[in-house]
Design a protein around this nucleic acid. Structure first.
Lengths: 221, 221
DNA sequence: GAGTGGCTGACAGATCGCTGACAAGGGCTC
DNA sequence: GAGCCCTTGTCAGCGATCTGTCAGCCACTC
């Protein structure tokens, strides 16, 4: 689970970041609106935590620009307690939830998880590509009807690639999805993982785009 | 079966809680609207029992906010007898059933079970998976027609897994369903429980998805 | 044919889930 | 109230699996 934390106050931001990482999230950080907008527009996040008072571009504008650009990730807004007007504006701008400051860390985590669960629940349970079927409810994969056992990490890889079928996914993006931030950059773990998956599912599903990344075709090869 | 009981009157609340726990439910309690809303939005409940007159945020507003946020758990409303207007409002707000005060405890339990069954998509009280049959009304389990004695906790585990057959249920989710909120996180109680159940019901029913959780197949292996 | 990027097999440390033993707590009987 | 049984969580140890690293190889590109 990779999330973007947009917060200019380091005292708050550092604390939140620490808690989320302890909770198993991979956290990216932005301290101003421009940077936040760019990251949200170019990277993939499971959710965004957005503080409204920001230098550069204010939070609501960032959110509106994301939504206008078709970004659909769930966004949790941090706002001053009782500021009802801000809340309404936030919802209008496309926020999924809001949390008044000050908040308890457990509450933030719980809400964040709820958001992610909800947005994940909208995805359909079955993705079929060629001879391969991914069942996200049973967390299983089958080829030509035969169930194939995948390890957790292997499953996550296949799941991510199949859910983003039809576009090239870079090794860096995969690394960021599958591992924590401090992960060794020039590891070939992803390559090894892809190799293991191909041995199990066949070499057709995941194609290599040399120099760019990996590709799963939408209609199955 | 984990339920949320929202009731500010401790005299009523304590009695209901005691009865439900005796009936095999795990009960979380809220005494005001804000807290109720938060819990309902972030935790998983099989059902909610909601009193309308609450301090903080009133019951109907809580319910509306849940529904607006996409929460679909069944909600049973407690209301003053004959207050037809309140009832209509409740149903409009997304309640699934209502029960006029004062009520008999047996009626509350029966309605609650009916609600949960209905929301699980089970027309009957029987769930049959492979050689195993779960009778939610008699709270009993049999394998190949032979009744098997399960302890309360074991029964809850089997019941939850069978009612969510066809999807992987994580250990965390099980922990949340079987234990109260403040339960030790890194206990292996669930693993032990699963082991005990397997010894009684056989190893076929509950599959382990290493790294993800447990799975009961829909059509029985 | 050189160079780069990607693939593969072997390996070992880490992690995960299962099990048996144990003890605390509750309820029942006598 | 003593003794017994049942339930249930804790703990330690075990075995299996998982997974990142590394070195060497292969294949594509220019």
């Amino acid at each position: 689970m990779r999330v973007l934390l947009v917060e200019d106050d380091d005292r708050v931001g550092d604390a939140v970041e620490a808690v989320l990482e302890a909770g198993g999230f991979v956290v990216d950080r932005s301290r101003d609106g421009e940077d936040a907008w760019f990251k949200g527009d170019t990277e993939h996040y499971s959710a965004v935590i957005l503080d409204l008072g920001l230098p550069g571009m204010d939070g609501l504008s960032v959110l509106r620009r994301w939504r206008a650009a078709g970004q659909r990730m769930p966004v949790l807004i941090l706002t001053a307690r009782g500021d009802w007007g801000e809340r309404v504006e936030g919802i209008d701008a496309g926020a999924d939830d809001y949390l008044p400051k000050p908040f308890r860390m457990e509450e933030l985590q719980a809400r964040l998880r709820a958001l992610i669960r909800r947005s994940a629940g909208q995805a359909s349970a079955l993705i079929e590509i060629g001879k391969t079927i991914l069942d996200t409810r049973r967390m299983s994969v089958s080829v030509e009807g035969v169930p194939i056992h995948l390890s957790p990490q292997e499953y996550r890889l296949v799941s991510y690639l199949m859910q983003h079928a039809g576009r090239v996914v870079s090794q860096l993006e995969l690394t960021e999805q599958l591992y924590a931030q401090d992960f060794e950059r020039d590891s070939n773990a992803v390559e090894v993982l892809v190799g293991r998956v191909r041995r199990k599912l066949g070499t057709d599903l995941i194609q290599t785009r040399r120099g760019f990344g990996y590709l799963v075709e939408l209609d199955g090869v």
